[in-house]
Design a binder for these strands. Structure first.
Lengths: 351, 351
DNA sequence: CTCAAAATGAGTTGCGTACCTCAAAACACC
DNA sequence: GGTGTTTTGAGGTACGCAACTCATTTTGAG
């Protein structure tokens, strides 16, 4: 009736006895220190695996003495999503200090590749791990690889540099996010036919470009009754987003759907509401955007916005820390746990 | 540019010096041991708070000696969702044993309150923490309270007993889940009007009843064009679900939506597909169900199913363990982290 | 003031590992 | 066989805290 998981209470001493060697030798094998004959190494490793031995992390952590230092390199501008990540890191402070971990926020212009690369280089040697909101650019890639070569653990956060040798990526698949947005706009538009507008920050940003790509993919293949208008660029600013969208809404009277890829949500919502007022007969425009903020929460509750595609910033912050810690300790990563999901948030499942 | 979170490297010795007392007294205060004058207690606590002191969890864990034991009390029958939870616990085994934690699975008939209560009583004293898939019943409530009084940490899993003094509930809000399902069926049905069917396991199950309640709430208030038919009971069995649903589909030709509250998904899908074949002119029925399994994943990809409301079983398993551990250690719980979200899963954001 | 009870100080031991030193043993090579 | 090198053993110290003992000081009641 009861089935037990886990819990061998073996210690290094037991492993040493089993392998017929001394503690010192086990220690040398465990930490890849030199001066052990190959077949002795094998004997020790065999004993470790035979018993599924796991070093006691508490003891290891205590013995190593010095604390671990991690750095988070984040965009310097006022970005609500990044601020949320910082806030959630702040909420972890008790958790961090109970484990003698320190996390330092380093602000930099992540949109300028040379600045970002230079900032990354300055971190070398000072940290056990670095999380970085990275731009995909050769200079940045090289800087990341240098960090890795120096023994620092590196995870990319929110935005990936797949061509680098970073140890892990904590973030969502943006193409799939765009596809999800497309499916939602298409499905929520019901039987209607008409046009669909896209407002993005800039098509130069990798994550925005990927989302648009996924969105168009789905629209083209599954919703032939809807035609996608050329992408509007709002630079993630409210005013500009409002202007470009208002103009488009004026020009086309048969817009039934709207996908807001990045920020500037306030402006987008305003353009939408104004149009609805001035033009009462018109059907409601299906509006899908990204991220759950104070604003999008309100828009969802009011029914202005129909769905938000969200990546949980708290989860991203904590996952980044846990992954860096696991990497630093040489522990396995719980992939399933650290994976960031694409959340569909509607009014009734608002977190 | 760099802002540091965390990381006082203070020790108990420092606190003792600050408070002008000895290590022994600090220890007494920290562990609520008797024999300390009230105002000395205050002085020590003041020093602790002034420095935001956090005991080094690694040192504490190492010093306490004995390992911690947790029990998971799960339904004995073959339930795919529960099996997933067990599987994810299994994946944690390395993580658990590195922390010298043991997790034992205890199977019991959770649907018989007296059996469940008796099983819970047998655990008393043997475990530091218990996670239980609980039935809301006075006998069960009493058994949980007894465990709590004996000093065992208790979390309810998936299904709650809010009237008990359990320390934490790891699971979703089922009324909100039902509301979400309702909003999806309503929105995905588009402009159409017609009838909506509900297939549940049994209306006697608390979680099913709550989901139906939430579903009806939304349908009544927001989708007047859709009328909800009386609930069909499929007892979570495939055959029975198929039969009752097939009969209903035969009787009503204007069914546009279907909410499957529990299991029996295979049967529901079969009834739906058969009907669609025999009756080609008919519009597709919007089908919303629960949980991501091998089957629902396939149905979503095929387009038979439109959305699944899901609670992440891996997250539930890990959250339960982490919460029990935090409770046992006296650490604060990261509420945001341990909260189980209502996931909307559609084809393009399948995990 | 006296005396018992309460409060506090001082100290010890052990948890399992990391990291280090030094000596001893085993080995390879000529 | 002797040499130098590599490999191994033995042991120590430190990490921060839990949990305990026992002696000493302080306190309050009579």
């Amino acid at each position: 009736m009861a089935e037990t998981l886990t819990a061998t209470a073996l210690t290094l001493k037991d492993i040493a006895r089993e392998a017929g060697v001394s503690l010192a030798t086990v220690d040398r094998v465990l930490h890849n220190r030199p001066g052990v004959r190959p077949d002795t190494v094998r004997r020790v490793q065999a004993a470790i695996e035979r018993n599924a031995f796991q070093p006691h992390v508490a003891a290891a952590e205590l013995a190593r003495g010095r604390a671990r230092r991690f750095a988070f390199m984040m965009p310097s501008g006022p970005n609500p999503f990044m601020q949320q990540i910082e806030a959630y890191l702040g909420e972890m402070s008790a958790w961090l200090s109970a484990r003698r971990l320190s996390v330092e926020m380093v602000a930099t212009d992540v949109f300028d590749p040379s600045v970002l690369a230079a900032s990354l280089e300055t971190l070398s040697g000072d940290y056990d791990g670095v999380a970085v909101v990275a731009l995909d650019h050769p200079g940045v890639r090289a800087a990341i690889n240098d960090l890795v070569d120096a023994g620092t653990k590196v995870v990319t956060l929110v935005s990936d540099v797949p061509s680098s040798r970073r140890h892990h990526y904590v973030g969502i698949d943006n193409i799939a996010a765009g596809r999800t947005a497309g499916a939602l706009v298409g499905r929520l538009a019901g039987q209607r036919s008409g046009k669909v507008a896209i407002v993005a920050g800039s098509q130069g940003l990798r994550d925005h470009a990927e989302r648009i790509f996924g969105f168009n993919q789905v629209m083209a293949s599954e919703f032939p009754a809807l035609s996608v208008l050329p992408v509007l660029e709002g630079r993630d600013e409210d005013d500009r987003s409002e202007q470009v969208l208002a103009r488009l809404l004026g020009k086309h009277t048969d817009i039934v759907g709207l996908y807001n890829v990045g920020a500037g949500t306030q402006g987008v919502a305003k353009a939408l509401s104004d149009k609805a007022l001035s033009d009462a007969g018109r059907d409601k425009v299906v509006f899908v955007g990204h991220d759950v903020t104070v604003l999008t929460r309100r828009l969802l509750l009011q029914g202005v916005m129909d769905a938000a595609i969200s990546q949980n910033p708290g989860h991203e912050a904590r996952a980044a820390v846990r992954v860096l810690l696991a990497l630093a300790r040489g522990e396995p990563i719980l992939r399933e746990q650290e994976k960031i999901r694409i959340d569909i948030v509607m009014r009734d499942n608002l977190p």
